[in-house]
Simulated assay, not measured.
Amino acid sequence: MTGGGTAVAAMILGALGAATALVRVYSALNQLSDLESRSRIPVFGDMVTPPSTGAYAITIAWLIAEITTAALLGTGVAQLLRRRRRGQTVMVIGCGWAVLAFAIGMYVMVELTPVRTVPIVATTVLLVFPLTTLVLAALPSTGRWCRS
């Protein structure tokens, strides 16, 4: 029987990733609310342009991507906890999906927020966590732990 260190680490990072995806769901909902309020409030001198349909579409895509990320990572953690081999696959897919959701979220934050204060370099460092989780979940030792 193997120790399962990589699997346990992948489960911990996956659970944290699912939790942060849920926080980002809240951020996406907040962004949608902000877009909606900007489209309804008349501004003196018309200094604020109403958001385009594309802004809504990309924000909704971000929301769906984050919900899917939370579901995939949560399912992967639960399956790995039960030592199911498919948990390893779901975790790898969830981590790849998390990177995609991160990219969409960064686009939304950079392009759609009125104030350009998003620290892109510092935020990109956060990609280390899903990529580390992906590597840990994909390692052969995690698969051996699932089979044992």
Rank of each mutant, 00 (worst) to 15 (best):
G3Y: 05
G3T: 14
G3E: 11
T6Q: 05
T6V: 07
T6K: 07
A7H: 03
A9D: 09
A10D: 02
M11S: 04
I12D: 03
G14K: 05
G17T: 02
A18S: 12
A19L: 14
A19I: 10
L22N: 08
L22S: 11
V23T: 12
R24T: 03
S27R: 05
S27V: 05
A28Q: 10
L29H: 09
Q31I: 00
Q31F: 01
L32N: 07
S33C: 00
D34V: 02
L35I: 10
E36Y: 15
E36N: 13
S37L: 07
S37A: 11
R38W: 03
S39C: 00
R40M: 10
R40W: 12
I41L: 13
V43L: 11
F44A: 15
F44R: 08
D46M: 12
P51N: 12
S52F: 08
T53E: 13
T53M: 05
T53L: 01
A55R: 07
T59H: 09
T59C: 01
I60N: 06
I60C: 01
I60G: 00
A61C: 11
W62K: 08
L63E: 03
L63T: 05
I64Q: 02
I67K: 02
T68Y: 02
A70K: 05
A70F: 07
A71Q: 05
A71P: 04
A71I: 07
L73I: 08
L73E: 06
L73H: 06
G74P: 06
T75C: 03
G76D: 05
V77E: 00
A78S: 12
Q79K: 13
Q79L: 15
Q79H: 12
R82T: 10
R82F: 08
R82H: 11
R84M: 10
R85G: 01
G87M: 07
T89C: 03
V90G: 01
M91Q: 09
G94V: 04
A101S: 15
A103D: 09
A103N: 11
G105S: 13
Y107S: 05
Y107W: 10
V108T: 11
V110L: 11
L112S: 04
T113K: 12
T113R: 14
P114Q: 11
V115S: 12
R116P: 07
T117H: 14
T117G: 13
V118T: 15
P119D: 09
V121C: 01
A122N: 10
V125F: 14
P130V: 00
T132E: 00
T132M: 14
T133L: 03
T133G: 04
L134S: 02
V135N: 03
L136F: 14
L136A: 06
A137P: 11
A137G: 12
A137V: 09
P140G: 04
T142Q: 04
T142S: 09
W145M: 06
